[in-house]
Simulated scan of single mutants.
Amino acid sequence: MRIYNISYILLGFLLLWNLLVYLIYYLDKQKAQKGLWRVSEQTLLLMSLCGGGLGALISAQQFRHKTRKWYFKLVWLVGILVDGAILYMIWRLR
Rank of each mutant, 00 (worst) to 15 (best):
K31N: 14
N18A: 09
L19E: 06
L15T: 01
L93S: 10
H65R: 14
Q42N: 12
I6G: 10
I86Y: 01
I58H: 00
L10V: 12
G84T: 10
L57V: 02
M89R: 10
D83C: 11
D28R: 08
Q62F: 09
I90K: 07
Y4G: 02
I6R: 12
L81W: 06
N5I: 08
L27V: 10
G35S: 04
T43W: 11
L87N: 11
G35R: 02
N18T: 06
I6V: 15
K29M: 09
A32D: 03
Y22P: 13
W91Q: 15
L49M: 01
Y22K: 09
R94H: 15
Y26V: 04
K73F: 06
A56L: 07
L87A: 10
Y25G: 02
W70N: 12
V39N: 08
L10N: 06
G55C: 01
S7M: 15
G79Q: 00
F72A: 01
R94F: 15
R64W: 05
R68L: 14
A56T: 01
W76L: 05
S40V: 13
L36D: 15
L19K: 05
K73Q: 07
Y26S: 07
I3N: 09
A60K: 01
I6P: 12
D83P: 02
L49W: 05
N5F: 04
M1T: 09
K73I: 09
I86D: 05
L87D: 12
V75I: 14
N18V: 07
G79M: 00
I80M: 10
F72V: 03
L14F: 05
G79D: 01
L14E: 07
L57D: 01
S59I: 10
I86N: 03
L74Q: 06
W37K: 13
L16Y: 07
L20A: 15
W37F: 10
Y26D: 01
I9S: 08
A60V: 00
L11F: 11
L36A: 13
L44S: 08
L49R: 08
C50Y: 11
G84D: 07
S7L: 09
S48A: 10
L27E: 11
G84P: 03
L54A: 05
F72D: 07
L36M: 08
L14V: 02
R64N: 14
V39G: 04
R94L: 15
W17D: 05
S48C: 09
T67H: 09
F63A: 02
Y4F: 11
M47E: 02
H65W: 09
K73D: 04
R38V: 13
G84L: 15
I9C: 10
L23D: 09
Y22D: 02
R94T: 12
